[in-house]
Amino acid sequence: MKFPGFVYHRPTSLDEAVELIGRLGGDAKVLAGGQSLLPVMALRLGQPEHLVDISRVSGLDVLAHDDGVVRVGARVTHAQVEDAPMVRRYAPLLADAMPWIAHRTVRNRGTVCGSLAHGDPAAELPAIALALDASLVARSVRGERIIAARDFFEGFLTTSLAPDELLCEVRFPVVAPGTVTLVSEVSRRHGDYAMVGLAASLRLDGAGSIDDVALALFAVGSTAVRATKAEDALRGRTLTPDTIATAVAALREELDPPGDNHASPAYRRHVAGVVLARTLQGFAADAAAISGDAA
Protein backbone atom coordinates (compact mmCIF):
# COMPACT_ATOMS: atom_id res chain seq x y z
CA MET A 1 0.00 0.00 0.00
CA LYS A 2 2.27 2.74 -1.27
CA PHE A 3 1.09 6.09 -2.52
CA PRO A 4 0.69 6.31 -6.29
CA GLY A 5 2.92 8.81 -8.05
CA PHE A 6 2.03 12.50 -8.28
CA VAL A 7 3.64 15.85 -8.84
CA TYR A 8 4.12 17.84 -5.68
CA HIS A 9 3.70 21.59 -5.38
CA ARG A 10 4.31 23.69 -2.35
CA PRO A 11 3.28 27.29 -2.94
CA THR A 12 4.00 29.89 -0.30
CA SER A 13 1.47 32.57 -1.18
CA LEU A 14 -2.27 32.41 -1.61
CA ASP A 15 -2.10 33.91 -5.11
CA GLU A 16 0.41 31.29 -6.12
CA ALA A 17 -1.69 28.51 -4.62
CA VAL A 18 -4.89 29.69 -6.26
CA GLU A 19 -3.13 30.13 -9.60
CA LEU A 20 -1.80 26.55 -9.39
CA ILE A 21 -5.13 25.06 -8.47
CA GLY A 22 -6.77 27.08 -11.21
CA ARG A 23 -4.28 25.84 -13.75
CA LEU A 24 -4.33 22.20 -12.65
CA GLY A 25 -8.06 22.10 -11.94
CA GLY A 26 -9.50 18.64 -11.50
CA ASP A 27 -6.09 16.98 -11.79
CA ALA A 28 -4.97 18.48 -8.49
CA LYS A 29 -5.88 17.84 -4.90
CA VAL A 30 -5.13 20.19 -2.04
CA LEU A 31 -2.96 18.66 0.67
CA ALA A 32 -3.23 20.22 4.10
CA GLY A 33 -3.02 17.73 6.98
CA GLY A 34 -3.57 14.80 4.66
CA GLN A 35 -5.56 12.78 7.17
CA SER A 36 -8.46 12.23 4.78
CA LEU A 37 -6.63 12.45 1.46
CA LEU A 38 -3.63 10.26 2.14
CA PRO A 39 -5.58 7.18 3.28
CA VAL A 40 -7.62 7.41 0.09
CA MET A 41 -4.39 7.55 -1.90
CA ALA A 42 -2.78 4.73 0.08
CA LEU A 43 -5.74 2.53 -0.82
CA ARG A 44 -5.39 3.79 -4.42
CA LEU A 45 -9.04 4.84 -4.36
CA GLY A 46 -7.87 8.23 -5.55
CA GLN A 47 -4.87 9.03 -7.71
CA PRO A 48 -4.55 12.78 -8.18
CA GLU A 49 -1.89 13.78 -10.67
CA HIS A 50 -0.88 16.79 -8.61
CA LEU A 51 -0.84 17.59 -4.92
CA VAL A 52 -0.79 21.20 -3.87
CA ASP A 53 0.57 21.35 -0.34
CA ILE A 54 -0.78 24.48 1.33
CA SER A 55 1.13 24.03 4.57
CA ARG A 56 3.41 26.97 3.78
CA VAL A 57 0.84 29.31 2.29
CA SER A 58 0.92 32.45 4.36
CA GLY A 59 -2.29 33.81 5.79
CA LEU A 60 -4.09 30.49 6.05
CA ASP A 61 -3.17 29.95 9.69
CA VAL A 62 -5.72 32.34 11.13
CA LEU A 63 -7.53 31.16 14.24
CA ALA A 64 -9.25 34.21 15.64
CA HIS A 65 -12.41 35.71 17.06
CA ASP A 66 -13.15 38.58 14.78
CA ASP A 67 -16.20 40.68 14.04
CA GLY A 68 -18.83 38.27 15.31
CA VAL A 69 -17.27 35.16 13.87
CA VAL A 70 -14.66 32.60 14.77
CA ARG A 71 -12.33 32.31 11.78
CA VAL A 72 -10.50 29.07 11.14
CA GLY A 73 -7.96 29.16 8.33
CA ALA A 74 -7.18 26.25 6.04
CA ARG A 75 -3.97 25.32 7.81
CA VAL A 76 -5.47 25.19 11.30
CA THR A 77 -5.50 21.71 12.80
CA HIS A 78 -8.14 20.11 14.95
CA ALA A 79 -5.63 20.07 17.79
CA GLN A 80 -5.10 23.84 17.56
CA VAL A 81 -8.85 24.37 17.72
CA GLU A 82 -9.16 21.89 20.58
CA ASP A 83 -6.48 23.70 22.57
CA ALA A 84 -7.80 27.24 21.96
CA PRO A 85 -9.79 28.66 24.90
CA MET A 86 -11.18 31.25 22.48
CA VAL A 87 -13.02 28.54 20.55
CA ARG A 88 -14.56 27.08 23.69
CA ARG A 89 -15.81 30.55 24.60
CA TYR A 90 -17.11 31.80 21.25
CA ALA A 91 -17.92 28.61 19.34
CA PRO A 92 -18.56 25.99 22.01
CA LEU A 93 -20.24 23.58 19.61
CA LEU A 94 -17.05 23.50 17.53
CA ALA A 95 -15.04 22.85 20.66
CA ASP A 96 -17.50 20.11 21.69
CA ALA A 97 -16.84 18.29 18.42
CA MET A 98 -13.08 18.04 18.80
CA PRO A 99 -12.73 15.09 21.19
CA TRP A 100 -15.03 13.05 18.94
CA ILE A 101 -12.79 13.45 15.90
CA ALA A 102 -10.69 10.30 15.55
CA HIS A 103 -7.77 10.44 17.99
CA ARG A 104 -5.35 13.13 19.09
CA THR A 105 -2.69 11.73 16.78
CA VAL A 106 -4.94 12.40 13.81
CA ARG A 107 -6.13 15.74 15.20
CA ASN A 108 -2.51 16.88 15.40
CA ARG A 109 -2.33 16.83 11.60
CA GLY A 110 -5.90 16.98 10.31
CA THR A 111 -7.43 20.36 9.56
CA VAL A 112 -10.92 21.73 10.06
CA CYS A 113 -11.14 23.03 6.50
CA GLY A 114 -9.75 19.76 5.16
CA SER A 115 -12.50 17.81 6.86
CA LEU A 116 -15.14 20.20 5.51
CA ALA A 117 -13.76 20.03 1.97
CA HIS A 118 -13.66 16.23 2.17
CA GLY A 119 -17.36 16.28 3.09
CA ASP A 120 -17.62 12.89 4.73
CA PRO A 121 -21.24 12.44 5.84
CA ALA A 122 -20.13 10.53 8.95
CA ALA A 123 -17.66 13.20 10.06
CA GLU A 124 -18.44 15.69 12.78
CA LEU A 125 -17.39 18.98 11.25
CA PRO A 126 -19.80 19.20 8.31
CA ALA A 127 -22.61 18.83 10.86
CA ILE A 128 -21.09 21.52 13.04
CA ALA A 129 -20.86 23.85 10.06
CA LEU A 130 -24.49 23.15 9.20
CA ALA A 131 -25.71 23.58 12.76
CA LEU A 132 -23.91 26.90 13.15
CA ASP A 133 -24.73 28.21 9.68
CA ALA A 134 -21.03 28.63 9.03
CA SER A 135 -19.68 30.48 6.02
CA LEU A 136 -17.01 28.91 3.89
CA VAL A 137 -14.59 31.18 2.10
CA ALA A 138 -13.40 29.88 -1.26
CA ARG A 139 -10.80 31.54 -3.44
CA SER A 140 -9.97 31.07 -7.07
CA VAL A 141 -8.37 33.16 -9.77
CA ARG A 142 -11.91 34.29 -10.41
CA GLY A 143 -12.04 35.87 -6.97
CA GLU A 144 -13.47 35.10 -3.56
CA ARG A 145 -16.77 33.39 -2.92
CA ILE A 146 -18.54 32.93 0.38
CA ILE A 147 -20.61 29.77 0.53
CA ALA A 148 -23.19 29.11 3.20
CA ALA A 149 -22.75 25.72 4.82
CA ARG A 150 -26.25 24.70 3.75
CA ASP A 151 -25.17 25.18 0.13
CA PHE A 152 -21.78 23.54 0.53
CA PHE A 153 -22.43 19.83 1.09
CA GLU A 154 -23.97 18.41 -2.05
CA GLY A 155 -23.62 14.65 -1.69
CA PHE A 156 -21.41 11.83 -0.55
CA LEU A 157 -17.86 13.27 -0.47
CA THR A 158 -19.09 15.99 -2.79
CA THR A 159 -19.16 19.73 -2.11
CA SER A 160 -20.01 22.80 -4.14
CA LEU A 161 -16.36 23.80 -4.21
CA ALA A 162 -15.35 24.24 -7.86
CA PRO A 163 -12.27 22.38 -9.11
CA ASP A 164 -10.34 25.65 -9.28
CA GLU A 165 -11.31 26.78 -5.79
CA LEU A 166 -9.37 26.57 -2.57
CA LEU A 167 -11.27 26.50 0.70
CA CYS A 168 -9.30 29.15 2.58
CA GLU A 169 -11.27 29.65 5.70
CA VAL A 170 -14.42 28.77 7.56
CA ARG A 171 -16.27 31.27 9.70
CA PHE A 172 -18.48 30.18 12.58
CA PRO A 173 -20.88 32.78 13.99
CA VAL A 174 -20.14 33.60 17.60
CA VAL A 175 -22.53 31.87 19.96
CA ALA A 176 -25.45 33.92 21.28
CA PRO A 177 -25.67 34.31 25.05
CA GLY A 178 -27.77 31.68 26.76
CA THR A 179 -27.12 29.03 24.15
CA VAL A 180 -26.42 25.46 25.19
CA THR A 181 -24.61 23.10 22.87
CA LEU A 182 -23.72 19.46 22.72
CA VAL A 183 -22.14 17.06 20.28
CA SER A 184 -23.13 13.50 20.94
CA GLU A 185 -22.64 10.35 18.98
CA VAL A 186 -22.89 6.60 19.12
CA SER A 187 -20.04 4.77 17.47
CA ARG A 188 -18.86 1.18 17.47
CA ARG A 189 -15.59 2.01 19.18
CA HIS A 190 -14.15 5.13 20.75
CA GLY A 191 -12.83 7.36 17.97
CA ASP A 192 -14.67 5.63 15.15
CA TYR A 193 -16.85 7.35 12.66
CA ALA A 194 -20.30 7.66 14.21
CA MET A 195 -23.15 5.28 13.51
CA VAL A 196 -25.30 8.24 14.48
CA GLY A 197 -24.20 11.70 15.56
CA LEU A 198 -25.91 14.90 16.57
CA ALA A 199 -24.67 18.44 16.89
CA ALA A 200 -27.23 20.41 18.85
CA SER A 201 -27.46 24.05 19.75
CA LEU A 202 -30.42 25.49 21.61
CA ARG A 203 -31.36 28.76 23.29
CA LEU A 204 -34.13 29.35 25.76
CA ASP A 205 -35.67 32.73 26.32
CA GLY A 206 -36.38 34.14 29.75
CA ALA A 207 -39.64 32.25 29.96
CA GLY A 208 -37.97 28.94 29.22
CA SER A 209 -39.29 28.64 25.72
CA ILE A 210 -36.98 27.64 22.88
CA ASP A 211 -36.29 30.65 20.72
CA ASP A 212 -33.50 29.18 18.66
CA VAL A 213 -32.55 25.63 17.87
CA ALA A 214 -30.24 23.90 15.43
CA LEU A 215 -30.00 20.14 15.07
CA ALA A 216 -27.52 18.71 12.59
CA LEU A 217 -27.16 14.97 12.22
CA PHE A 218 -24.29 13.05 10.76
CA ALA A 219 -23.82 9.49 9.51
CA VAL A 220 -27.51 9.29 8.65
CA GLY A 221 -27.42 10.15 4.96
CA SER A 222 -25.22 11.06 2.03
CA THR A 223 -24.38 14.36 3.72
CA ALA A 224 -24.78 15.80 7.17
CA VAL A 225 -28.34 17.09 7.49
CA ARG A 226 -30.32 19.63 9.46
CA ALA A 227 -33.34 18.04 11.13
CA THR A 228 -35.73 20.79 10.20
CA LYS A 229 -38.90 19.01 11.25
CA ALA A 230 -37.52 18.20 14.67
CA GLU A 231 -36.35 21.79 14.98
CA ASP A 232 -39.85 23.01 14.07
CA ALA A 233 -41.28 20.72 16.71
CA LEU A 234 -39.09 22.43 19.29
CA ARG A 235 -39.10 26.07 18.30
CA GLY A 236 -41.33 28.14 20.55
CA ARG A 237 -41.98 25.27 22.96
CA THR A 238 -40.67 24.55 26.43
CA LEU A 239 -38.48 21.51 27.03
CA THR A 240 -41.13 19.22 28.48
CA PRO A 241 -41.10 15.44 28.09
CA ASP A 242 -43.96 15.81 25.63
CA THR A 243 -42.08 18.29 23.51
CA ILE A 244 -39.06 16.05 23.50
CA ALA A 245 -41.13 13.04 22.46
CA THR A 246 -42.70 15.04 19.65
CA ALA A 247 -39.32 16.20 18.42
CA VAL A 248 -37.94 12.66 18.54
CA ALA A 249 -40.90 11.36 16.56
CA ALA A 250 -40.45 14.16 14.01
CA LEU A 251 -36.79 13.34 13.68
CA ARG A 252 -37.39 9.64 13.11
CA GLU A 253 -40.00 10.58 10.55
CA GLU A 254 -37.76 12.85 8.54
CA LEU A 255 -34.63 10.67 8.44
CA ASP A 256 -34.00 8.04 5.79
CA PRO A 257 -30.64 6.69 6.87
CA PRO A 258 -28.52 4.15 5.01
CA GLY A 259 -27.37 0.76 6.30
CA ASP A 260 -23.86 -0.59 6.34
CA ASN A 261 -21.85 -3.23 8.16
CA HIS A 262 -21.88 -1.20 11.35
CA ALA A 263 -25.56 -0.30 11.68
CA SER A 264 -28.84 -0.95 9.92
CA PRO A 265 -31.14 1.84 8.67
CA ALA A 266 -33.60 1.00 11.42
CA TYR A 267 -30.86 1.23 14.02
CA ARG A 268 -29.76 4.62 12.81
CA ARG A 269 -33.30 5.96 12.77
CA HIS A 270 -34.04 4.66 16.24
CA VAL A 271 -30.78 5.72 17.82
CA ALA A 272 -30.92 9.18 16.23
CA GLY A 273 -34.05 9.64 18.29
CA VAL A 274 -32.33 8.28 21.38
CA VAL A 275 -29.41 10.65 20.97
CA LEU A 276 -31.77 13.59 20.45
CA ALA A 277 -33.88 12.65 23.46
CA ARG A 278 -30.85 12.33 25.69
CA THR A 279 -29.41 15.60 24.47
CA LEU A 280 -32.66 17.47 25.08
CA GLN A 281 -33.17 15.82 28.45
CA GLY A 282 -29.67 16.96 29.38
CA PHE A 283 -30.46 20.50 28.26
CA ALA A 284 -33.70 20.42 30.24
CA ALA A 285 -31.92 19.18 33.35
CA ASP A 286 -29.26 21.88 32.97
CA ALA A 287 -31.91 24.55 32.53
CA ALA A 288 -33.78 23.30 35.58
CA ALA A 289 -30.56 23.34 37.58
CA ILE A 290 -29.78 26.88 36.47
CA SER A 291 -33.25 28.17 37.27
CA GLY A 292 -33.08 26.24 40.53
CA ASP A 293 -29.81 27.98 41.34
CA ALA A 294 -31.30 31.32 40.45
CA ALA A 295 -34.24 30.70 42.77
Binding site: M1, F3, Y8, R10, L31, G34, Q35, L38, P39, A42, L43, D53, S55, A79, H103, R104, T105, V106, N108, R109
Partner: peptide, 25 residues
Protein backbone atom coordinates in the same frame (compact mmCIF):
# COMPACT_ATOMS: atom_id res chain seq x y z
CA UNK B 1 -4.10 3.75 6.36
CA UNK B 2 -3.94 5.64 9.60
CA UNK B 3 -5.87 3.43 12.01
CA UNK B 4 -3.52 1.20 14.01
CA UNK B 5 -1.04 3.74 15.37
CA UNK B 6 2.03 1.48 15.12
CA UNK B 7 3.81 4.09 12.98
CA UNK B 8 3.35 6.93 15.47
CA UNK B 9 6.31 9.30 15.76
CA UNK B 10 6.72 12.70 17.36
CA UNK B 11 6.74 15.61 14.96
CA UNK B 12 7.82 18.82 16.68
CA UNK B 13 6.79 17.09 19.90
CA UNK B 14 3.31 16.05 18.80
CA UNK B 15 2.32 12.46 18.07
CA UNK B 16 1.49 11.89 14.39
CA UNK B 17 0.89 8.92 12.12
CA UNK B 18 4.01 8.67 9.98
CA UNK B 19 2.11 6.57 7.41
CA UNK B 20 -0.29 9.46 6.81
CA UNK B 21 2.37 11.99 6.04
CA UNK B 22 4.71 12.50 3.16
CA UNK B 23 8.38 12.71 4.00
CA UNK B 24 8.44 16.00 2.15
CA UNK B 25 5.85 17.36 4.56
Amino acid sequence: HGVCGACTVLLDGAAVRSCLMLAVQ
